[in-house]
């Protein structure tokens, strides 16, 4: 059901987004960082789900909170003439990679476990046949 909701959301987003009105280039920095922050939250959420530590409130607050906070930080950076968005990108993308690593490892372990289980089953089966003989 959740996957269904995500698929519908993505489809509607693409359909509406293709004909989206052109926004001034000035805001592209903010939008980019908001997207990165949201993606970071998404991957964080996936990792948390895999670890069975997923909290919906944390996820939603992180999704919106990170996006808005990063945008505000960039605004501050523009006022202070510091490229804060670089730092934000580094942090968010770094965390994204961490989460991706965790997800990859989780599935690799799962795969390994599955393979071991299969081998065990095979061995058990062969043992059984041996004893039967």
């Amino acid at each position: 059901m959740i996957i269904f909701a995500i698929a519908i959301g993505c489809l509607v987003g693409i359909m509406l987004g293709i004909n989206a009105p052109a926004v001034s280039y000035i805001y592209s920095d903010y939008l980019a960082i908001a997207i990165i922050a949201a993606l970071d939250s998404v991957f964080g959420g996936i990792t948390a789900t895999l670890k069975e530590k997923f909290d919906f409130k944390v996820f939603v607050s992180g999704f919106f909170g990170n996006a808005i906070l990063s945008m505000l930080l960039i605004l501050l950076g523009k006022k202070l003439n510091v490229d804060i968005y670089l730092a934000a990108v580094v942090v968010f993308v770094g965390r994204m990679f961490n989460n991706l690593t965790m997800i990859r490892r989780f599935y690799l372990e799962k795969w390994d476990n599955l393979m071991k289980l299969k081998e065990q089953v095979k061995q058990e089966k062969s043992n059984q046949t041996k004893t039967e003989k």
């Binding site: 959301g9 993505c10 987003g13 987004g17 949201a38």
Partner: peptide, 9 residues
């Protein structure tokens, strides 16, 4: 997800 994809587009 809709919002994210929309902003991305």
């Amino acid at each position: 997800s809709f919002m994210m994809i929309y902003i991305m587009m």
